[in-house]
Design a protein around this nucleic acid. Structure first.
Lengths: 307, 307
DNA sequence: GGCCGCGTTCCACATATTGGATCGCGGAGT
DNA sequence: ACTCCGCGATCCAATATGTGGAACGCGGCC
């Protein structure tokens, strides 16, 4: 996807250096939110759901720790018996989606990597295209930056880039999935949909929201969305994770339904007052850059720039 | 992973243009080889295997056709009833690993892409690092170039790049998996292992080889491997797919077990006589470049260059 | 030497998956 | 306009399938 001369690589390396040793070991509880997923029984597919959830989990853990994930860890986090997890892992290994290190840890395998490659051909150029924007935003804001994508009635954290500020936001990491409406990016996407569609989404997720996000008030979210339609950005004052404030802007792509957003998260102090405007300005600039880059890919004529 | 300025992108675009319209619609049979996979019953996991096999298949088809894969196509290729395939697809969609286009086709979804991203953190830098080498090789040879990786007792086609010659080798595409020993790259990897290890691999795959590759003679493969130990490259005179000849060299990475190879495949006429030496020279040069690049990543001191 | 936590294996149970059959739809053919 | 065809979606009885509690063996640690 890139060679050593990739201009992003320098930025990236710099980040890595500054981040080193700062990577706090996430508490064992991880972000189980999306791991314990909606398994509507009767659809005849929860073994698949369980397996893929496990695969996600392996990815999430092994993505942060070089040693990979241990069996009992996976068992306890996913909340199923070790025997089951073990059996699933065997299957995943047999298929090459998971590998086992000599030291015993589990991590993603070659097939996972290849699947990703195949996926890049089909799915959005968005993720790759926004790479450099995310790096710039992280660099400039010193906070944590996210690219959120919509899938069905969910939003998923597709990319995350660390600024190297003092604070470290662990509320969301790559691969985490939440119902639409949870998170600044997610709300930003909703703000581009019609009120009717927004209602439809909230309705589709009604149970999940009530069950897993009991503190969240849907009417309140609707208010935020309405405000965002006016402002053009979402401001989330720590609604979902305590102390995790954020701003988000939608990505508007020509000829495509709204389904992506950029957001920046940090502590309350850094997402208040005049700084909000500054962050929003940064986000808007990058959002525009990305949408123009994507438009020009399909259509050689430069965008009229209505953002 | 790259932005518009990625130096590989130009090469790549050029390829795309030259390839356009030449992408023969693979015959409906596809390369089912690895799709109908070893489902050892009783392990208690073939629903997972089936689902992941289907996922692979969606990736393979949608990787070549923008419209994605159709249900009945997937059903007929994978050889299971439509009802089952449909149910699995629903599950995969619910998890975000597969998406459905408005036009009705199935293709890989956001989660697949993200899984790939997470995998890149854990798995080899090899695949990304060898990108430009593959492009150069394709460009220079005008044939089809492969990066093969080892997983357990299998080899998998991790990358494939088209030269724009007259002939088009369809024997192997990205994601295809075969037992170790099937294919020039695969053999090249084996040639770096000790004879005892080679035997162990053949033994592990004995049944599969006998059943699915009845024409292949293991003793003969052993001879080829022995020869490759002397020559430093593998020459496959159409052993596995009729008319598909190839040469392959192993990738030797400092401080890592042998598990990768580069190979070039074409028709008999183009992989005989003096051209073999020329191709091998090309392969060797790139193999050296890659291994040096990787060594210098972990160890700042330049490699002593014993290749 | 005994304890603990780990990964692994076993097996009777029941449930989740299976797939043949059916249905509804939209496009092609006459 | 009517039929035919192939597609994707849905249903449901039969059972093959995955399940998970329990027990095992191993290595490190007190």
């Amino acid at each position: 996807m890139h060679n050593g001369a990739d201009p992003n690589e320098e930025l990236r390396e710099e980040h890595r250096i500054r981040m080193r040793g700062r990577l706090l070991r996430r508490s064992a509880s991880f972000n189980v939110a999306h791991a314990v997923d909606s398994l509507e029984p009767g659809t005849g597919a929860q073994s698949i759901q369980r397996a893929l959830t496990l695969l996600n989990l392996v990815g999430l853990i092994a993505g942060e720790r070089r040693e990979g994930a241990s069996l009992s860890e996976l068992a306890s986090i996913s909340g199923r018996p070790k025997a089951s997890v073990h059996r699933m892992l065997q299957a995943l290994i047999a298929m090459g989606y998971v590998e086992r290190l000599e030291e015993g840890g589990y991590r993603l395998g070659v097939q996972s990597q290849i699947l990703g490659q195949l996926a890049q051909k089909s799915v959005d150029p968005l993720v790759t295209e926004s790479e450099s924007s995310l790096l710039r935003l992280a660099e400039l804001s010193h906070d944590t930056v996210f690219l959120t994508l919509r899938t069905g009635s969910y939003s998923i954290c597709a990319r995350r880039e660390e600024g190297f500020g003092e604070i470290f936001n662990n509320a969301l990491s790559v691969g985490d999935r939440h119902p639409l409406g949870i998170g600044a990016g997610s709300l930003a996407i909703l703000s581009e949909l019609s009120p009717a569609e927004v209602d439809a989404q909230f309705e589709a997720n009604a149970e999940i929201l009530a069950e897993r996000y009991p503190k969240v008030s849907v009417p309140h979210l609707r208010d935020i969305i309405d405000q965002a339609r006016i402002d053009g950005f979402v401001h989330n004052p720590g609604l979902f994770a305590q102390g995790s404030w954020a701003v988000g802007v939608p990505l508007r792509i020509r000829g495509s339904r709204p389904r992506a957003a950029l957001s920046i998260a940090s502590i309350a102090d850094r997402v208040t007052g005049p700084r909000v405007e500054r962050l929003v300005a940064l986000l808007r600039r990058e959002a525009k850059a990305i949408s123009e880059a994507l438009s020009s890919q399909t259509d050689p004529a430069p965008d009229s720039g209505d953002l």
